[in-house]
Amino acid sequence: MVPWVPPGLISDPNLPALMILGLMAGLLALDDTALAQTWFGQPLPAAILTGYLFGDPVTGLAVGLPLQLVLAGNLPVGQTFTGDPTSATVAAVGGSLLAGRPLSPVSVADTAGTLPLLGWVLLGAGLLSMLGHPLIQAERRVNGIWMLKGLHSLRDGRLARIENLHNRCLLTAFLRGLVSGILFTLVIHGVWVPLFAHLPSLLQTSLGTLPLLLPGLGVGTLIDRYGLKNSWHWMALGMVGTFFAARYFSGVLP
């Protein structure tokens, strides 16, 4: 136990669960850029899959949906790649569930109850994703070094070297996801969620507002990408039509 940390703040991790989360993060990290790019590594599906893994897809939905919306404008393209939302999302859902704190989606959560904790977990996921950014950049720098090693094959024509180097890069992406997933889960489960109870009430109230701000923020980012002038009428069409349809068929809403 660390002496300066309040008692009960750091709880014991569950090793098999951590390993499963690490494997999940590793596989989804591969999907992000290195392998197939199926988009199952996006925050919403990653969160739901993690939720299913622990028997609570609703917590996955609660965390994944606002994260997915706010990260909708991020492009996973070469140089513009930012953050590691995949590992952060897996850790946020897994860490919360391991800490025994299931979460509810914004539309059913009460503002005084689970909403502030959801805001706190979302903030943690965002910060961890930013923390994962230098790791991804380091991985790409290592890829660059190995790529330069492949120049030897241009002299000796040894094809096995090229095969090994590429496979090594693939393995590194998986291991980076696995390690990030485990470390981030430890942070969320052991420190971040327990720390919530020690936050000042003003900050807790503000955190309750955070999940409500994020969907608009994400949609606003997309409007910025599409261009307000080009997109407003199509968006207005979708918004007005859906709003009235949802009000009319309110029985079908969860």
């Binding site: 969907p215 199509w234 709003f243």
Partner: peptide, 14 residues
């Protein structure tokens, strides 16, 4: 664009 508007509309209704 239409789907973004639909997300806003549904969220508002919810």
């Amino acid at each position: 664009m239409v789907l973004s508007g639909m997300v806003i509309g549904l969220y508002l209704a919810q």
